[in-house]
Design a protein around this nucleic acid. Sequence first.
DNA 1: CTGAAAGCGCTTACAG
DNA 2: CTGAAAGCGCTTACAG
Lengths: 348, 348
Amino acid sequence: MISKPGRGGQHPTMDHVAAAAGVSRATVSRVINNAASVAPAIRETVQRAIASTGYVPNVAARSLVTRRSDSVALVISEPDRPDDHSFLNRIFTDPYFGRVTAGATGALRPHDVHLVVMPAEPSDHHQVVRYLRQGHVDGVLLISSNEHDPLPAQVHALGIPVVLSSRPPGPLPVSYVDVDQVAGAELAAARLLSLGRRRLATINGPLDIPAGSQRLDGFRSYLRDRGVDGVPAVTGDFTRAGGEAAARVLLAADPAIDALFVASDLMAEGALRAVQDHGRRVPEDIAVVGFDDSSVALECRPPLTTVRQPVEEMAAEMAALLMAHIENPSRSPRSVIFQPSLVIRDSA
Amino acid sequence: MISKPGRGGQHPTMDHVAAAAGVSRATVSRVINNAASVAPAIRETVQRAIASTGYVPNVAARSLVTRRSDSVALVISEPDRPDDHSFLNRIFTDPYFGRVTAGATGALRPHDVHLVVMPAEPSDHHQVVRYLRQGHVDGVLLISSNEHDPLPAQVHALGIPVVLSSRPPGPLPVSYVDVDQVAGAELAAARLLSLGRRRLATINGPLDIPAGSQRLDGFRSYLRDRGVDGVPAVTGDFTRAGGEAAARVLLAADPAIDALFVASDLMAEGALRAVQDHGRRVPEDIAVVGFDDSSVALECRPPLTTVRQPVEEMAAEMAALLMAHIENPSRSPRSVIFQPSLVIRDSA
DNA sequence: CTGAAAGCGCTTACAG
DNA sequence: CTGAAAGCGCTTACAG
């Protein structure tokens, strides 16, 4: 007894089907893989045999020879935080990552490729790399925003197809998808200016991640070019609580600000609260523009005017690029940059 | 320096390691799988050979003989909705499913088992079943709340180990994890009564799912036993918008209600808005109790008093049960019921 | 404690 | 268009 029979009885193998159809195993394989060269009559016989035996291919055996697993990893590489009670919880309840997962899943489905979602704190990197090396997946979608994250380079060194969610830190010949961060910040600045606001402030994301620094730079330099200088900025951590705290700091320093650009909707939701707790109305006293157009923008009171980032589409594009690289490993890396747009609601 | 296996380059196999270590392939296999019977000196030699060759086992080959994939599916079976612009989006940004995913991922990690997350609308059932039959995974965690969902029975019929997130509809010999829904509703009712409220109302979940009907029944019968009858109820769909709409209906019917039990925090957040839009204060005019203790409970204004359901722990327990069933397929199915608790914050 | 050998269930050149 | 045969890279009874 080499191995115990499969749960629920023996599964039929390709040999059973071949016997039932009176053909060779090779022919059954060709029918299953839609090889062109099977005679219609035989194809039909085989299909009937497949149906009658209830045959389902064994994926391990197939993978062993094709060297394809038909699955792909979505690695979400995020720094851990001192106050992180639960890293996994933060990742899996974050609306941004949720949208990414939804977009990637949807795009992969027509390819019959499945997604293994792997949140990765720095301490998990080793495990992730080992997993990828073992050939569990055909490629990886790597969500990494931190400039100093070593994972993109490590994954690339594995020689496994990979697509990043933003420009790689340093010269890595790897495909990536991004949104034009600067253009997005400019859209926000222009809106606030057009509303006649001149006492602007901003809550930016962490400066060691491009989405943080580029949105800040874009916002400030657009304003500077139009004569608005010295715009105060406080750094938040892309969480609701971080946005709320940052807004308090800003309000304490200058209670008279009349406009606020917040680098994410989640932070904007927190900021809205701080502003309102401070007794100021939105948008009458302070106009607020967020970034992302995630579902929280609609849940805010008032509904948030925000810079829309088509996250699901971007994730779908990442998946499409990855599939192309898997299909053709010598394909040149390329980047796809999405243009953001302004969604005007009630907050500005 | 280990030579990296370039694109198209050969990964070393077990034979390479065996040759490098001067032993047989079988011995290398034993070292890798921690078989007890390897002499320490040989074990060490083999380990050095593994390191120097950069060998990593091929998982497909291993799976083919062990019949284990070391991954598990998390199937989230949900009805689609007429107004569902994006099913995937709804699933992946739902805080409840996020907590489930986090809990399961964390519990599986020590087993070195990975999670394939599969949202499944009714139209996807066929695909899901096929995926499971192909042996991609060793077992399935099935999140299904709808009483008429055929998937639990279908998956069970596959003979693959499965653990459900609630009592199966009908007599299915399958393990499941649940929270004591009735006890939770009673906790809410008792709290509201203890606050002196007598004009109570409730927003319940869909009645064709146990979490919907049991919370409603538990709430009403607890009150009835204490002389409070005819409590109005409106059904919501467990979304924020659904809760808001339901609260409006309730308020229109009886503007004088002084307490509200809402069957999920997400719906409670919506209800809070409707109540406040209606010019009524929480908790002064209307006390509100939610259900779940998800992160949104803390984000509400005021922070929500709610019935805590330890979702992450429950998901971890599901994972533990599943691993046990995989390890020992003849293990008897069992159910594990968690007791809810009341978390008192500001809304009641 | 270790090795030779069989076998897991497929796919795919290679002939015919 | 079809089949016989080799081979993918492992694990594991079986002998020694």
